[in-house]
C-alpha cells in the first residue's frame, strides 16, 4: 500500500500532540509501520504548530511535504487555510471552525480573512468544517476539542469502535477518560 499522510495542525497549546499520540498507537496496533513527527520548543508558545502522522507498509520520511497530505486535521480555521498547499488533489481538510486570532490580527497589523471555508473550496480543496469547540464544551471541557476532532476523523477510517476506544484509553489520563470518550462520540456522530 502507498504510505498515507495525516497532518494535524493548530495553535500551540490546543492539544495536537495528544491527537498524534493517539493516532500513532492506533495505527501501530493495526500492524502498520508508523512515523509521527512533532515540533517542540519555541513554536509551541501560541504559534502555528504542525504534526505529521504517516503510516503504511514501510514509512521512510517522518515529514509530510507539499501536495502529500491525504487528510489535514485542523484545530483552527486559519491554520487549515495556512496548510492547504500540503493537501493532495484528492485530499480532505477536516477542520474546527473555531477562530483564534494570531498576534498580527490582535495588534491590527493584519485582518483575519473572511469566508475561509468557501475560499478553500474555491481553491479545489474538499473541506469538512464543523464547530468542534461547542461539542467539546458539551462533552465537559473546551480542552476536549482534540477528541472531538478524532471522532470526526474516525469517519474516514475503517477502524472499529473498539480499536478507537482502546487507543483513547491508552492515551488520556484515567481521570478524563469518560469526558474524552464522550467528546469522541460527539465528534463521530456530528
Amino acid at each position: 500500500m502507498k504510505t498515507k499522510n495525516i497532518m494535524i495542525v493548530g495553535v500551540g497549546g490546543q492539544g495536537s500532540l495528544l491527537a498524534s499520540k493517539l493516532l500513532g498507537k492506533l495505527l501501530l496496533q493495526r500492524g502498520y509501520d508508523v512515523k509521527v513527527s512533532e515540533v517542540h520548543g519555541m513554536s509551541q508558545r501560541g504559534g502555528s504548530v504542525v504534526t505529521y502522522v504517516r503510516y503504511g507498509e514501510k514509512v521512510y520520511s517522518p515529514i509530510i511535504d507539499t501536495g502529500e497530505a491525504d487528510i489535514i486535521v485542523s484545530f483552527e480555521l486559519l491554520e487549515a487555510a495556512r496548510w492547504t498547499q500540503y493537501l493532495r488533489p484528492d485530499g480532505t481538510i477536516v477542520t474546527n471552525t473555531q477562530r483564534i486570532n494570531p498576534m498580527p490580527v490582535i495588534t491590527g497589523a493584519a485582518e483575519y480573512p473572511s469566508e475561509l471555508v468557501a475560499k478553500m473550496e474555491t481553491a479545489g480543496c474538499r473541506v469538512d468544517a464543523f464547530d468542534a469547540l461547542s461539542l467539546a464544551k458539551e462533552a465537559g471541557s473546551s480542552k476536549a476539542v482534540n477528541l472531538v476532532l478524532m471522532g470526526r476523523l474516525s469517519r474516514y477510517f475503517d477502524f472499529s469502535e473498539e480499536e478507537w476506544q482502546q487507543a483513547i484509553e491508552q492515551s488520556v489520563p484515567p481521570k478524563f477518560l469518560e469526558m474524552n470518550r464522550k467528546a469522541f462520540a460527539l465528534g463521530a456522530k456530528s
Binding site: 495553535v11 501560541g46 504559534g47 502555528s48 507539499t66 501536495g67 486559519l78 491554520e79 487555510a81 495556512r82 492547504t84 498547499q85 500540503y86 493537501l87 493532495r88 488533489p89 494570531p102 498576534m103 498580527p104 490580527v105 493584519a110 485582518e111 483575519y112 480573512p113 475560499k119 478553500m120 481553491a123 479545489g124 480543496c125
Partner: peptide, 12 residues
C-alpha cells in the same frame, strides 16, 4: 498543492 491566493496572517 493548492495555496490560497489570499495572504494568510502569520502566527508567530
Amino acid at each position: 498543492g493548492r495555496a490560497l491566493e489570499e495572504a494568510i496572517p502569520a502566527r508567530p
